[in-house]
């Protein structure tokens, strides 16, 4: 689905202290899988996501989405994105916001899908509320709904559980497995090992701008991610 080829990105190149955000990143995000992206703050997760989305240009390297080099407008039609920093405004209602996003993706009459998803995340009663009246967790749910609107083939979730309560995390887990069954490929970025272990088929560990380990489905299915991860960290140190 997504091939990441030799991606490098350095910030503040001209300064005394350039920041190497990504170094020779090579990875595959496989079709119909949930791929986890785990790493500490500043590891390069968000930079990689921004490059996949075309928000940032890499210094070199390429991103291939659905056999297409470089992100164009057609590629963006098949991508859903949940931002870690939701957009909030005082004057727009929840339903109008989702409807607007749906329209931008080319789905003009998407009321049934919007209501279905609001219902799934227990937000139906908030459909007429202003975005600014929602709690942090509700806003996060809204962004998750936003990412799955229309018919995306690839959904990128950037720390989707950061503001969610434990019940909502379980809801999200179920939701993601249902979406996966419909053939959607998901890239799931997180800080939490236990979370990615329960949700993902495969986990990429990113550290200081490098993908240092690819934990396969065998490790995850055996529930050995935390053990393997700890062992890997010890060996690396």
């Amino acid at each position: 689905m997504v091939t990441i080829l030799n991606i490098n990105k350095t910030f503040n190149k001209r300064s005394k202290f350039p920041v190497k955000a990504l170094q020779n990143i090579n990875a595959n995000i496989r079709k119909n899988q949930v791929t986890g992206l785990i790493g500490s703050n500043g590891a390069g997760k968000t930079t990689l996501i921004r490059i996949i989305l075309g928000f940032e240009s890499p210094d070199n390297g390429s991103i291939i989405i659905n056999d297409k080099y470089n992100l164009d407008i057609t590629s963006r039609k098949i991508i859903g994105y949940q931002s870690d920093m939701p957009f909030v405004t005082k004057s727009v209602k929840v339903f109008d916001y989702l409807d607007f996003n749906s329209k931008l993706s080319g789905y003009d009459n998407n009321e049934s899908q919007i209501m279905e998803m609001l219902d799934y995340f227990l937000l139906t009663a908030s459909a007429n509320k202003k975005l600014s009246d929602l709690s942090k967790g509700m806003r996060q749910k809204l962004e998750i709904i936003n990412a799955f609107l229309g018919k995306p083939k690839l959904v990128i979730l950037d720390e989707p559980t950061a503001a969610l309560d434990p019940f909502a995390v379980i809801e999200l887990r179920d939701f993601i497995s249902k979406q996966k069954e419909t053939g959607i490929t998901i890239l799931f970025s997180s800080h939490h090992l236990s979370e990615v272990e329960k949700i993902c088929d495969r986990v990429l560990f990113i550290n200081q701008g490098l993908i240092v380990k690819d934990f396969g489905s065998d490790v995850i299915q055996q529930g050995m991610l935390e053990v393997e991860f700890t062992q890997f960290i010890k060996e690396s140190n």
Binding site: I73, I79, S83, M85
Partner: peptide, 10 residues
């Protein structure tokens, strides 16, 4: 983050 929300769409 409105610009980001918009430009994530086509």
């Amino acid at each position: 983050f409105y610009l980001r929300t918009i430009l994530a769409r086509p």
